[in-house]
Design a binder for these strands. Structure first.
Lengths: 313, 313
DNA sequence: TTGTAAGCGTTATCAG
DNA sequence: CTGATAACGCTTACAA
């Protein structure tokens, strides 16, 4: 049954026939008790219905299935404490997960995490900084740079920034890169406008922006927020992109159907999920890589929410 | 350790101290081999990044965690065959799932499924017809009725329908109810316009509708499609809701931020997920219900994409 | 209240 | 190539 070849064909046939006849099925718990392997991948996610989590999940599932792994998910509340994450980690470990993918902003470098990752491999799925986990992560700084430079190249004098939830590490990384990119061009960054990923928070940020006549270009940290932001701008009588250009991040399925269609920096969530899963699997099995690693480079998608500023056009 | 009370306090303390000191943790596989229980819930989902799946998932996780269950997910490709679903079911069973939630249009009544559900309880998570699984499912017919009647009550002469993917059972149920509701008011239903849940398909349907001057009211089977549809209408120079009213289904997070904000029939996905999980858990544990059952009634949310027809207003 | 022992259903090793 | 047997780490029933 395990597919070894030191069995007489006839015997194998007889065994398989018996399996069929008796409806025999291996008992996973017994098998993993005996073999010491579970082939279970754990995933920690924050309890959210955001597009990014869902898309990430399909990538993870895909890679897991392709390699004979099964995935077990533990959800923690949004904004949960580090302790809650560690607890989820322990739950997953106890349940037999051989490797764990963190879809949450859990610092891999803390002592508590270090202790854990020594016995069971773990990786940040998305939004990992380049330093933390070399060449497979999505470079959040590149995302911000792509967005800001697109706007600047269009002729805008400066770029405002609506950031995501502070809780997430990529928020800070993008903010820093936004600031840096502006400074590199000799521009003093305007004050940052904080938000929290939700369309509602984007809407609120939009009202703030609308009250600033000189704001002509905005870099918003997610498409979801961009929807809210644009709505607020329209309500204030400011046209997008004629009065203000906006570029966001993610390229969710609906981005192309916003009014106007969003110019956005695509994050390849599925590929990121696949890459994360392949990475832990490689660690579990102790080799370098499984299959080919999907590319996770962010990409600027230019649509209709950006244009040169009025004065220039 | 199992929390029984027939132990001298002092002994318990000593045991717990040892647990702590040695870093002892129960081995789940060994435990479930011995006890015959895994406390694992299986979920079969189609591999998609749609909002509904994600939201459903958070509900399932919530109820599972609250009852000490862990969830294991198996993804199947969208439009997969019934065999693929059955295979996923088997995979989950083999892995020890004590109950399975189907987030897919798998007929529970087929002989193959019957054979399986006899040994491990299963339930359709979402989109279940009332007949199949009495009072906890979402009544797809009520959804269609709510939408169509709202439009008719506004004064529209008839209502066109853009349906979801045929693959899903709720598609047919909604189409039937749309048709029935019209007939009940003595209206002959116009031809149905088929689509497949994606914004793209909604866009295509929108072009079709735009070419029909007498169409003033549309019932679209998902918010995602409504985004595409409205975009197409606008491109054709038809205003929403002035020229055509549209009501959709789901009330996704972005529905309120569409232009115009969508009038939609809300499906309480999280509650549905919670209800589904509670249902299987109840079956597993052999009692009637665990905790209070969340209500899963659909609800019409009136926003700005509907209005009386021009001729009437 | 505590200690003991018999499984649970596999895998893996080893002698034939 | 085949068959027998000892773990794997826990739960549970029962004896003390």
């Amino acid at each position: 049954m395990s597919g070894q070849d030191n069995v007489r064909p006839d015997t194998a046939r007889r065994v398989l026939a018996a399996v069929e006849e008796l409806g025999y099925r291996v008992h996973a718990a017994a098998a993993s008790l005996a073999s010491g392997r579970t082939r279970v991948l754990g995933v920690i996610v924050v309890s959210t219905d955001r597009y990014s989590s869902a898309a990430l999940g399909v990538g993870i599932q895909q890679a897991a299935a392709a390699n004979g792994y099964t995935v077990s998910t533990a959800a923690v509340a949004d904004h949960a404490s580090a302790e809650a994450f560690l607890e989820a980690f322990d739950r997953l470990e106890r349940q037999g997960a051989e490797g764990i993918i963190l879809g949450v902003p859990l610092e891999l470098e803390s002592p508590a995490m270090r202790a854990r990752t020594e016995r069971t491999p773990a990786t940040r799925s998305e939004r990992t900084s380049l330093e933390e986990d070399a060449p497979l992560a999505v470079d959040q700084r590149a995302i911000a740079r792509l967005a800001v430079e697109h706007l600047l190249d269009l002729g805008h004098k400066t770029v405002w920034h609506v950031s995501g939830d502070d809780y997430w590490t990529e928020t800070q990384q993008r903010s820093e890169a936004w600031e840096q990119t502006l400074r590199d061009r000799g521009i003093v960054p305007p004050p940052l406008i904080p938000a929290d990923w939700t369309p509602e928070s984007g809407y609120r940020a939009g009202r703030t922006i609308a009250a600033i006549p000189e704001a002509t270009a905005v870099f918003v940290s997610s498409d979801e927020m961009a929807f809210g932001l644009i709505r607020a701008l329209h309500e204030a009588g400011r046209s997008v992109p004629d009065d203000v250009s906006v570029v966001s991040v993610d390229d969710i399925a609906l981005a192309a159907y916003a009014s106007p269609a969003l110019t956005t920096v695509r994050q390849p969530f599925e590929a990121m999920g696949r890459a994360a899963a392949l990475r832990v699997i490689a660690q579990i099995e102790g080799h370098e890589a499984v299959g080919e690693m999907p590319s996770t480079d962010p990409q600027l998608i230019v649509r209709s929410s950006t244009a040169p500023p009025r004065s220039v056009s």
